[in-house]
Amino acid sequence: MESIKSQQVTFKVFRFNEETDYLPYYNTYVLDVTHEEVVLDILNRIKWDHDGSLSYRRSCRHGICGVCSIKVNGKGILACKSRLFDLVEVFGNEIIIEPLSTKRVVKDLIIDKKDFWDKHASVKPYLVSEIEEHPASEHLVSPHDAEKLLEADYCIQCGACHYSCPALAINEEFIGPAAFAAAYRFSADVRDEASLQRLHTVNEEAQGVWDCVKCMECAEVCPKDVNPIEKITKLHNMVFEAGIAKNNVATRHAVGFAHSIQKHGLLDEGELVRYSEGNIGVMKHIPEAIAMFAKGKIVMPWNMPKSKNLDEVKKLIKSSSTVKF
């Protein structure tokens, strides 16, 4: 039999009861942890052996219900899936246990996920299809078509990405990575008939995909490897392919790269800002441009560097472009 390894770990656990507490505080527990234990085991031990009032969500214990998601030393995890020994290896033996969002705490590690569910619902996260009541045959999806869903189907709505997204933390309108992944999941389904509607939802300014900051936090944190940022990129592509990309600063910012590369191989930074913002919008960048110019940070159009063998780049853009704006 494998011998049980154990080590001492200090746990600082976030506590707050909105009915009785004015401010949150942390309780400290020093426990011997074995190599088999996951974070949920520790929460159970604290509740059962030390303080019965500690509140947290738990249900399936199999990494599939998504309710036990919390943060450990700032990293979103599923409590039932994350081994303490692995966490100690990364963060050292002081483990800080917090709710996914300290702003939305109801009690201790339990948060109100209303914002998450509202946004999730806003993308119609279900198949929209007129189905005959008595179909003559099954509506089969080929393996090839099923592959297009990528891993978007694996999402368990735990909210780890949603509450790790820095764009969402600042811009409350932003729909967020989990709901975008769901929007992609159903829009990429060949049986679905609401794809265009969803694409319009994710194409809106402020709430839509254009406000993603591309930090890759969602891809990193997801406990089910959904890779939401990949689906966000796909939604960008689908918006262009569907021909519904609006002519605005966000879309021009993407298209402007193709224009610049076509002309110089490299990106013409100044022209990208002018093209994206438009001749009037670009005015607000003038103070910054003057400061940069004074420090030799702006290349004049006549000095714009070009890639060697530019004709190759031009030829490839001509032959390999797949969309039009």
Partner: peptide, 26 residues
Amino acid sequence: LDEASCCGASHLQDYDDFLSLVLNAR
């Protein structure tokens, strides 16, 4: 690598994923 072109900075990828693959591969 003076022949190299822009990587697309994740924005060309949003517009035309395949084109960005070809240019980066080049």
